[in-house]
């Protein structure tokens, strides 16, 4: 996973609430066995018409937003399906940061696992940043994760909150499986205790009918 430290970039305004993950990446594009290459399908039905032509009114089809690395949206961003294809598609397009009043829980989690920083800020602040973003290429926004600030084009700094553990992983680009495996001995101990206390808990291999492969 790529580190996230600071980012200065074009932000795309997307003043929509309840942007669901079906909208971010429709189900027909989930039939891949890879993580890469989904950016071309990001927001497919918003970006393209039935014949595959770009819809000029959609923000990511306009300059300078084709190169946007930040998205600013309204409430409940990323709701619906747990598909991690949503952050994969965003990342593949180039998005590294999403700012919204709140996010759906699973999407919020999935973003961090892919080096995307989701920032929660009040609706009024998001609307201000959306107005900034509408100014285009000369109004770039800066995100400084270490200092936990969003810097507006006019230099004003806006503080945001983030869980310290997630911040640590993101700043250092750390794989959390590696982190968890440092607790392997505790996991062993926990499993032994559970086996003793709840011997009734059956295994999924308990019947011969469900054999591997």
């Amino acid at each position: 996973m790529d580190k996230f430290t600071t980012l200065t970039a074009v932000a795309a305004p997307l003043p929509l609430a309840n942007v669901d993950t079906d909208k971010i990446i429709p189900a027909r594009f989930l039939k891949t066995i890879k993580r890469s290459g989904l950016g071309v399908h990001l927001f497919d039905t918003l970006r393209f018409d039935a014949a595959g032509r770009e819809r000029p009114e959609f923000v990511l089809n306009q300059e300078p937003y084709r190169k946007a690395q930040v998205l600013i949206a309204h409430e409940n961003f990323g709701c619906g399906s747990s598909r991690e294809h949503a952050p994969w598609a965003l990342l593949d397009f180039g998005i590294r940061c999403i700012i919204a009043p709140d996010f759906a829980d699973i999407f919020y989690n999935n973003s961090f696992k892919n080096g995307i920083l989701p920032i929660r800020l009040p609706r009024a602040v998001c609307d201000t940043l959306i107005e900034d973003a509408k100014l285009g290429g000369n109004a770039r926004v800066t995100i400084d994760l270490e200092r936990q600030v969003v810097v507006r084009p006019n230099g004003e700094e806006i503080h945001f909150e983030i869980d310290p553990f997630r911040k640590h992983l993101l700043l250092n680009g750390l794989d959390d499986i590696g982190q968890t495996l440092q607790h392997a001995a505790s996991i062993d101990g926990y499993e032994a205790k559970r086996r003793a206390e709840q011997p009734w808990m059956p295994a999924t291999t308990a019947t011969t009918a469900a054999s591997a492969g």
Partner: peptide, 8 residues
């Protein structure tokens, strides 16, 4: 959960 958590 997402796929990264599936792997986790």
């Amino acid at each position: 959960i997402g796929t990264s958590e599936v792997e986790h």
